[in-house]
């Protein structure tokens, strides 16, 4: 299911809950799948005693990956042309994350209809943990 430019309006939003009560086990899953075994994400002893953080925390790319899943569900499989983010705060075990895409503009480039989206992921306190943009091909 792809989006249609004719049915989109600037300011439209799409929001999804990404995860509730983020588990350390999911960080282990992401480490294994991505190959990023930095102990900061899975090794509580190292992270507290050597690195000086209060606990392990999520890979930024896990938050981006979950946010990307929301985007692909919204715009359709294989429709993204760009997706970029800044990681603005850390995500900790126990966090609830909510991601929102907001339509910023609709345009045509070389005869292809595109939508520009603003992307934001926030935690249970309303703090933004990821801020970014996406561009997707849409049907006319």
């Amino acid at each position: 299911m792809a989006l249609k430019a004719s049915e989109l309006v600037v300011g439209d939003t799409h929001s999804e809950s990404l995860v509730q009560d983020l588990k350390r086990t999911q960080l282990v899953q992401y480490a294994g799948a991505s190959g990023d075994y930095n102990p900061l994400h899975t090794d509580e002893l190292y992270t507290r005693e050597v690195a000086g953080y209060p606990s392990v925390f999520a890979h930024g790319m896990l938050t981006m990956g979950m946010t990307g899943a929301m985007l692909a569900r919204y715009v359709g499989d294989g429709r993204l042309t760009k997706f970029g983010v800044r990681f603005t705060a850390q995500v900790w075990p126990g966090d609830d994350l909510q991601a929102t895409a907001t339509v910023e503009s609709l345009r045509e480039e070389d005869g292809v209809s595109l939508v520009d989206l603003k992307v934001s992921t926030t935690n249970q306190n309303g703090s933004e943990v990821l801020s970014g943009y996406a561009v997707a091909r849409v049907d006319p």
Partner: peptide, 17 residues
Amino acid sequence: GNAGTLHAEQHFEYHRH
């Protein structure tokens, strides 16, 4: 020396998936 490095930004441009 990697623990002091954090990820600040990431950008993907898909020419095809």
